[in-house]
């Protein structure tokens, strides 16, 4: 009898907890590996301040997040690239109306091993390196050693952004395609001949790497992605906005969380996580897209 009561009590407790969970408003977020740590932190602080709310976050890359939004598997897609026409077409066919907002700025950072004397490159040199046209560091003033390329997989928004902004063509077939930013950082730390690209949030506190200064063209000033002002003002040549895609103008819990991300407190967290707050131009852009 005592055992029977214990089982019934357990079932009752379970029911109460489950009901309570469903009563909480849940927002599903999916996508960019670059954004995952930042949005995770934003959601933790948000949930602490809003006990009734629940945010669930998964990665998988920008492509996965956008596919999730189109398929109704998530409410917000984290994306470090813009949506493609094919994705917009799929979204339209499923009555999804993608709305883009920008939650942070990233200085996409090119990294080399700290034993490599190379510390600055032009956009053109970067393009030639990652297209596989330059294969030895000595060709661009470095030591006589083969260049080992580390980049992302094709479902990554960073992969697409870097390709469109820098390569304007296909990546070298020889590029090692890594799962995430952290894997690229580790690989380049261990490989004196390596070069990779990662979100700035992944390099600020890391040792064993040189964050390469980049110039938009030969003869122009070399700029570091670690310089907050140059990234925020867009002077750093590989500055990019970090986006979230929503289905239409958000309401309820989604709208509440977005407002937190874009608030002063949210933008302070953006900085704490190594990225940069959005400039006023993007605040206006967000207000327009959110119908504010």
């Amino acid at each position: 009898m005592k055992r029977c009561l214990q089982v019934l009590a357990g079932i009752g407790l379970g029911l109460i907890l489950t009901t309570n969970l469903y009563a909480r408003e849940m927002v599903q977020i999916k996508g960019s590996d670059t954004l995952i740590n930042l949005v995770q932190r934003l959601s933790e602080v948000y949930m602490e301040e809003n006990p009734g709310k629940f945010i669930a976050i998964t990665g998988g890359g920008s492509g996965t997040g956008i596919a999730g939004l189109i398929n109704g598997k998530c409410d917000i897609a984290n994306a470090s690239r813009l949506m493609k026409s094919k994705e917009i077409k799929q979204a339209n066919s499923r009555k999804i109306t993608p709305k883009r907002i920008v939650i942070a700025m990233d200085g996409l950072s090119v990294i080399v091993n700290d034993r490599n004397p190379i510390s600055k490159l032009t956009k053109d040199e970067l393009g030639r390196i990652f297209r596989g046209e330059v294969t030895n560091w000595k060709e661009i003033g470095g030591e006589d050693m083969s260049i080992t390329l580390y980049g992302r997989q094709s479902n990554s928004g960073t992969f697409v952004f870097f390709k469109e902004a820098i390569l304007k063509a296909d990546y070298s077939q020889k590029m090692n395609r890594m799962n995430g930013n952290a894997q690229i950082v580790e690989a380049v730390k261990q490989d004196v001949s390596g070069i990779g690209y990662v979100g700035v949030g992944y390099v600020k506190k890391v040792t064993g790497l040189t964050v390469v200064k980049v110039a938009s063209a030969s003869g122009k000033k070399y700029i570091s992605p670690l310089d907050a002002e140059d990234v925020k003002s867009g002077k750093y040549p590989i500055t990019r906005p970090l986006n979230q895609y929503l289905n239409g103008i958000p309401k309820g819990a989604i709208s509440h969380f977005i407002a937190f991300e874009l608030s002063e407190k949210g933008q302070r967290i953006v900085e704490e996580e190594g990225f940069f707050p959005i400039p006023s131009e993007y605040s206006d852009f967000n207000n327009k897209n959110l119908g504010m």
Binding site: L82, M83, S85, K89, N92, R100, G234, R240, P241, E281
Partner: peptide, 23 residues
């Protein structure tokens, strides 16, 4: 234009082109 304005224009252009293609 400042670089941020330029970036917004370029992104809007790309997104508009993508929309037109999708339609």
């Amino acid at each position: 234009l400042n670089p941020v304005e330029a970036q917004i224009i370029m992104d809007e252009t790309k997104q508009t082109v993508a929309n037109e293609l999708a339609q």
